[in-house]
Design a protein around this nucleic acid. Structure first.
Length: 270
DNA sequence: CGAACGACCTGCAGGC
DNA sequence: TGCCTGCAGGTCGTTC
């Protein structure tokens, strides 16, 4: 489910229900996620007040006075607000129960997600190495060009590297490159400053728009809502193999780049 | 150092 | 209906 807009949407969705409340119970049903869920997580959280919910890249930080719970949703993770009466389903791995019986529940079929503890989140090894937030002023064409140096890596792989910039997943990478008119296989070191400025702007535009749309995702999310989401209208290339380019009519092409499906217009992108 | 690739895990669609 | 293959929003760790 999640790229940055989906994680941000989750953050905004859960915050009002849980911030300021006291952890009453922590139920770990499946500790084997991407990394083991710490044994002492209940002891760390119970009795603490949740002070705020922040996002860093695709991580959510549930901040308490004694440290932060880091949540990552992997490929298939989902958070929702529920209550102790509602039946526990398959892949409901973690429940955070608050004093008023509000429950924040993590469901993650593929178990690529994570629930970790950090006393100082910014120092945590997974967070300390992350690149800038794409919507911040730190992220610019100049920055991208500087990080690209003379690397031969395909540009799509570069912008999906969280050490370079966080939050650009497989869908939005294809979409951003289309907006910027850049071929996804272009070696990063070959792109000039103007190209990088277009790309940085495109990434910001695509992510911002997706957040505004509520970060709708591909299958599940839209079905549950019963509405056509952001993607049906707004995806310009992703998943549109052999369909006409919205700008020039040429069939959208499909490639594997770094093991990931990539979509682009061979006429509009160079 | 950079680049490529396997690994983690489940569910689903499509072909036979 | 059932079996098999390939594919899916992420990203770390290993190898060359």
């Amino acid at each position: 489910m999640p790229e940055l807009p989906e994680v941000e949407t989750s953050r905004r969705g859960i915050s009002p229900h849980i911030v300021g409340k006291v952890f009453k119970n922590v139920i770990v049903r499946q500790p084997k996620l991407r990394w083991p869920v710490p044994d002492n997580l209940p002891a760390l959280l119970i009795g603490q007040t949740l002070q705020s919910v922040e996002r860093r890249g695709k991580y959510l930080l549930l901040n308490c006075a004694n440290g932060s719970l880091l949540l990552h949703l992997g490929m298939s993770g989902n958070l929702r607000i529920t209550n102790p009466e509602l039946a526990v389903g398959k892949h409901d791995h973690l429940d955070l129960v608050f004093a008023d019986d509000t429950v924040l529940r993590l469901n993650d079929p593929r178990k690529f997600g994570a629930a970790l503890w950090a006393e100082q989140p910014s120092q945590h090894p997974l967070l300390a190495v992350l690149g800038p937030e794409p919507l911040s002023a730190d992220f610019s064409g100049e920055y991208l060009q500087q990080r690209a140096g003379s690397r031969r890596l395909p540009i799509k792989s570069l912008i999906m590297d969280s050490h370079i910039v966080v939050g650009v997943g497989n869908i939005y990478a294809s979409e951003s490159l289309f907006l910027a008119g850049l071929h996804p296989e272009r070696p990063a070191g070959e792109i000039d400053l103007m190209g990088y400025q277009r790309l940085a702007t495109a990434i910001k535009t695509v992510l911002q728009k997706a957040i505004e749309q509520g970060g709708t995702t591909l299958r599940d999310f839209t079905n549950a809502e019963g509405k056509p989401g952001y993607f049906q209208q707004a995806l310009r290339v992703y998943g549109r193999r052999d369909q006409a380019c919205i700008d020039c009519g040429e069939p959208i092409q499909h490639l594997k780049i770094g093991q990931r499906a990539s979509y682009f217009c061979p006429v509009c992108q160079h």
